[in-house]
Design a protein around this nucleic acid. Structure first.
Lengths: 252, 252
DNA sequence: CGCCTGGTTGACACGTATCAATAATTGTGG
DNA sequence: CCACAATTATTGATACGTGTCAACCAGGCG
């Protein structure tokens, strides 16, 4: 069942993919490897070999500072392609670790070539998601620069949820959310203690409930307002998008 | 003289451009408009029309928070293409203002089409610079999340200098650096007061001298170490790069 | 059942914000 | 070219939010 691939689900969010597009994507997930929680998958500054599709579980990229503290940069959830943003660099830009047990599908650096050469639609989608991610990073930069602890945590939780919704429909019970409070602290530039206190405030205010690896947004409207959150996955302009016979990244 | 274009200088940094490539780039700067310091060029959330090449002067993108404070997100210097990262969005993602008097060269959204369809080299370069910028944003995220005031300011100053060096060769007198301490404060998530104090520390330590709109790096080795700065413009892997007859983003 | 990881809570320390007064620099009009 | 105004930078006193440290609690797994 190709519809079980989270990558295909994610990329189907904005446009209807052709069967050929689906086949191309399916090819990326031909081989798979299981990794257990805590595995250090890649080290920043070192050579890296394959990219991979994250098929199950969560990963995160991070760096360690000279004093040993950690900054979490990006959280990867099923359907994400990991390592694609390192392509122009000679070495991996960041460390990478598994937040949970996970299944990854490695493919060589040039594994994307068929996609670029055969599918304008997928090429455009890759480009689009890269720029969406960039906007999300800038929103997080804003949050770290100018927001207080409670707002930062609220903003970050929503950032992750908005990404999850591409592949995972919201349920009454909220989402599976396996990050620890220390993980969130390292993503938001806080400490586990502050995150704990921020989480209680969010609960008291009725914005969100987060416990036992489950996160539920209780009052989305007010939380979005509170954290001045912008969902960068919405309001995507499809009109510039490569149509069959238009923009095309391929071999000449 | 096409060699006077900062955009061409910037893009020539990694590969030798053909005359055709230079012509394509030159076309982007056909028309130009002067804007004066402080002009608010674009508002986040509003529709935007043209992209432009920044030909002279400095701009910055920013957002205003609900309490009125400002977060500066990106600094644009001559040679940068402004607005290219908004292409997939229906509205401008951020506000944009002129830090100095500037000259911008507007072109319509589809003005890049000839570049994508006719020059694999330029297409690859655009992609490369987008991912370099992304790495720089993540390094700044790390700095805002986990570094103290002095380190943050040192890191940010170096971030801008490393970009300037693509078009501007270092001189004994350092670089023209027109940002105010309030601008740097809003970029680093600090206040003008903290930036002032951080600047004195950097001067005392002999790392950098910054006054009267000039910035000079005095001890680069030690400053890079101190701020754990990584120059993302270095160590670019050209090998994957579109060769004539290889990877090609064009009209089929 | 008991260990181990993760979460909660409170007391105190520390770095940066805030406020305010002054100095230096840049820009402007006579 | 000078004089004045406006902007920008410096410096010090105090306030406040988050870090740090530490003790305790809860849940999951062997």
């Amino acid at each position: 069942m190709s519809s079980s691939s989270c990558l295909i689900k994610k990329l189907s969010h904005y446009v209807e993919l052709s069967q050929h597009d689906r086949d191309l994507l399916q090819d990326l997930e031909k081989s798979s490897t299981a990794v257990s929680a805590g595995t250090h998958l890649r080290e920043g500054g070192q050579a890296y070999d394959d990219l991979f599709v994250l098929s199950e579980g969560w990963l995160y990229s991070f760096t360690i500072l000279p004093d040993g503290r950690r900054q979490v940069l990006q959280v990867f959830v099923p359907g994400d392609i990991v390592g694609i943003y390192d392509t122009p660099f000679a070495h991996a830009t960041h460390d990478l670790a598994a937040a949970t047990d996970a299944v990854v599908c490695p493919f060589p650096k040039d594994g994307l070539d068929p996609i670029f050469s055969e599918s304008p639609a997928l090429t455009g989608l890759m480009f689009t998601f890269a720029l969406i991610d960039q906007a999300v990073f800038l929103d997080r930069l804003r949050a770290l620069g100018r927001m207080d602890a409670v707002t930062r945590v609220g903003h970050f939780l929503f950032t992750v949820i908005s990404r999850l919704r591409l592949t995972d429909h919201d349920t009454e019970n909220g989402h599976y959310f396996p990050l620890t409070q220390s993980d969130v602290a390292d993503a938001t530039g806080l400490t586990n203690v502050s995150v704990s206190k921020a989480a209680s405030v969010l609960r008291e205010k009725g914005f969100a409930k987060w416990s036992n690896r489950r996160l539920t947004i209780l009052d989305e409207t007010r939380l979005v307002e509170f954290a001045s959150f912008i969902n960068r996955y919405e309001n995507i302009d499809i009109s510039w998008f490569p149509q069959p016979g238009r923009l095309h990244l391929g071999r000449s």
